[in-house]
Amino acid sequence: MENDLNLSHHISKRFNEELEEVRNQVLKMGGVVEQQVREGLKSLLDADQGLAQRVVDTDIEVNTLEVEIDENCTKILARRQPAASDLRLMISIIKTITDLERIGDEAAKLGKNALKLHDDGKIARQFIELRHLGEHVSATLNKALTAYARLDVNEALEIIQNDRFIDEEFDNISRLLITKMMEDPREIKSALRISWCARALERIGDHTKNICEYIVYLVKGKDVRHTSIEEIKQTITE
């Protein structure tokens, strides 16, 4: 299901442009963060130092975008006093970019740990379990951003529902790592690093879920945070 915010239908053309611009900035920020996550994972699995450093450095770009978008939203709120769907768009953008920025921080952690593992002479490839979790999280983020662009509440619901699989996967990895550490205490240092990476991926999943909740709020006008899946389903079908 696709929705349209009719952003181009305001009597004020300048207002249309301002809303379009800020929305495009969010999509751009989403794209940057998504790539950062993908490359963070790749740098970890391929022990690619150069890529890892780039992922860490991208954080500055993400932070700059967050500040710019916040400023633009503040200007629109002050000058246009948006109401109804325009107001919800502003609120959802301000909240979404906070989560995107945090996803960026988590992705940067992947890069940093990739660099540290390399310094320790370890290769994350040994930890094949990370690949599965990472690819799943990365694909989910991609879907969420597409749902955001298309205002697709059904896709958003699916992502919210599937967040528990990410949590389960994280628990599995934790158990495996604990076993590894018990078997060979020399592995503790690198196992901890891998555990932090898994934790970062799990957090990215949580932030992605938050973004999907904002999509439901934007389209349906109802705050579905901290409610059950059943309630969200009901909101969507209303």
Binding site: N6, H9, H10, I11, S12, F15, P82, A83, A84, S85, D86, L87, R88, G221, K222
Partner: peptide
């Protein structure tokens, strides 16, 4: 003002 039901209300209060 946050979530009007009718399209005409929405159009009016958002200046569309």
């Amino acid at each position: 003002f946050t979530n009007p039901v009718h399209e005409l209300t929405e159009n009016y209060i958002t200046g569309r």
